[in-house]
């Protein structure tokens, strides 16, 4: 087949997918940027250019700062804990003991559940007085608590849900990586007189680095992408204590129908995720030995 015919086939084959992809990813990304420097169309008034006004409004919007801050705390708490737990789980179920497959199942099952189902389950778990958590706390002689209704605990309650849902997902990547480490490496280390802890720190952990990076990046993306539980469990409350960035966008865009301001907020979110992407290309793609 001639080169030109080949190229034509190439274009024709990718055309349907690429045009749809452009229509729902690239085009809206550009349109979002444009919308962020225009006003929201109201009634018969078309949008007009307003420069950086929306960004100035954003800087003065306390809920934006609160959501950004919440999201930061949410990410900084969820990521290390779920990654550490994932590694612990993987190490625990990587050895044989009675009930191993059951334990693995217990860790992984939350991953398969819809976040909305998880949110319902935990909503009940957190119910004041009636829920299991309050009953456990009461059993230990501590005061009852409105876990999702108080500023001090609401965000942490959501963080716990995210950790519960994600750890098992990350565990499978660690498990796969652990199983690829040749036993001879550890045997060699043991022959050299390394104890189990040294062996873990000096042999296993470094070999798991690519997996850790991969999992960290994924956790970071999820921390900014997943807000289903916020919608169901707290609606951003109390007093915006659990509003995350994407949730704030959702509220501004579809409760207040302020599309220009929602676009402005989206630009911030996409910028954050692009930074994560840049990190990913920098660290991950140059160092993993998966491919």
């Amino acid at each position: 087949m001639s080169k030109r015919l080949n190229a034509l086939y190439g274009w024709l084959l990718i055309l349907p997918a690429v045009s749809l992809l452009a229509a729902f990813t690239h085009l809206p990304a550009v349109m979002t940027l444009l919308a962020s420097v225009h006003s929201t169309p109201r009634g018969t008034r078309p949008p007009h250019f307003v420069g950086l006004d929306n960004y100035r409004d954003m800087m003065a919007d306390p809920i934006f700062w609160q959501s950004l801050w919440n999201n930061l705390i949410y990410a900084l708490a969820t990521i290390p804990v779920s990654v550490a737990l994932a590694l612990t789980m993987a190490l625990l179920v990587n050895r044989s003991f009675p009930g191993r497959s059951l334990a693995r199942l217990a860790f992984f099952t939350p991953t398969v559940l819809p976040m909305i189902a998880v949110a319902n389950i935990w909503l009940f778990f957190y119910t004041p007085d009636y829920g299991l958590l309050d009953r456990l706390v009461g059993f230990l002689g501590m005061a009852h608590h409105n876990w999702l209704g108080e500023r001090g605990t609401a965000l942490w309650a959501l963080i716990a849900v995210a950790i519960w849902k994600e750890s098992g997902f990350f565990m499978i990547f660690y498990l796969a990586a652990l199983q690829q480490i040749p036993a001879t490496l550890r045997e060699a280390a043991a022959l050299e007189g390394a104890g189990p802890w040294t062996c873990f720190r000096r042999v296993t952990l470094p070999l798991l680095m690519p997996t850790t990076l991969f999992v960290l990046i994924n956790a970071l993306i999820n921390a900014f992408r997943m807000v289903d539980h916020v919608v169901v469990m707290t609606r951003g409350g109390p007093d915006n204590a659990t509003s995350l960035l994407l949730f704030h966008i959702f509220e501004v865009g579809f409760r207040f129908w302020d599309s220009a301001y929602a676009a402005t907020l989206t630009v911030v979110l996409v910028t954050i995720l692009s930074l994560v992407a840049a990190l990913k290309f920098h660290f991950l793609d140059s160092r993993t030995h998966y491919r």
């Binding site: 993306i221 579809f254 989206t266 995720l273």
Partner: peptide, 9 residues
């Protein structure tokens, strides 16, 4: 990275 469900509006 930029999934369709981020560009809601």
């Amino acid at each position: 990275m930029i999934m369709p469900d981020l560009l809601l509006v």
